[in-house]
Design a protein around this nucleic acid. Sequence first.
DNA 1: ATGTCGCCTCATAGGCGA
Length: 296
Amino acid sequence: MERRRDAQCYRSYEGLHDNCTTTSHSQLRSGILDLSAVRRQQIKIASWNVNSIRTRLEHVLTWLRAQSPDVLLLQELKGTIFPAEVFKELGYESVAVTQKSYNGVAILSRQPIETINTTLAGDEKDSHARFIEAKIGGVRVVNIYLPNGNPVASEKFVYKLAWMDRLQDQMIRWIKDEMPTVIGGDFNVIPEDIDCHKPSSWIRDALFQPETRSRYRALLERGYIDAFRSLHPDEGGQFTFWDYFRSAFEHNRGIRIDHFLLTPSLAARLIRCEIDKTPRTFERPSDHVPIVVELS
DNA sequence: ATGTCGCCTCATAGGCGA
């Protein structure tokens, strides 16, 4: 049970700490510095598929201490245990939706969480733990673990596409109301060719099917912004997942499947969005790494 | 087809899901 604490990894995080605030040119020109505007709070939201919270707890704690995000979305808890009291000690309250063995999602937050929903509308019989809709500081924060859908010739792929249709219905409702909304998590979607190392090796995968990708594009066509891609257009080789086998990480043979989608009002506040590959170098890592978005 | 993880059990090996 003894697990190594990856203290040496803290150094590489230093460059990611960025607590500076922004001052507009008009404010500078006017010579009037409104302190409340200068101190305007930035919010840092992260998402991480941890592939078992029990196995990865030390990694998550190490990462939280180093990065101190305001909000962390977790996916693939893979069990009914959730160590809420441990996160509380670090200053995070939490809400977790768990099931035995599979799936499981949680939201950690320094600010109070108001849980709105723990299931995705549209299928009363769907009992998978894949969804949390919450309100945190006036922002709707949604954590999803979208079904993998493999193999393509199975009920699992049918379920995936239906889940995406239900998600789109919900996202259309959200974008129509006034609340700024961020949807983050493991989408299990490779949006474009540049989001994988080699398209030909994913061509038969559920994450890369035309039906999957067209549904993801439909979300963007409805007005949502892919936070990472909007700040890093045409930038390939940026992945959030690498297979465990065949040294995929060492060769950067990965895929970008963990995403943040923003409503336009939040996209206007988008400052940065980065993938933190460091935890993939930890001992016994998750196959995913955190993606971090910062909003003004 | 294969590789490697993590979970679970009619459990110490094998099946499932990813």
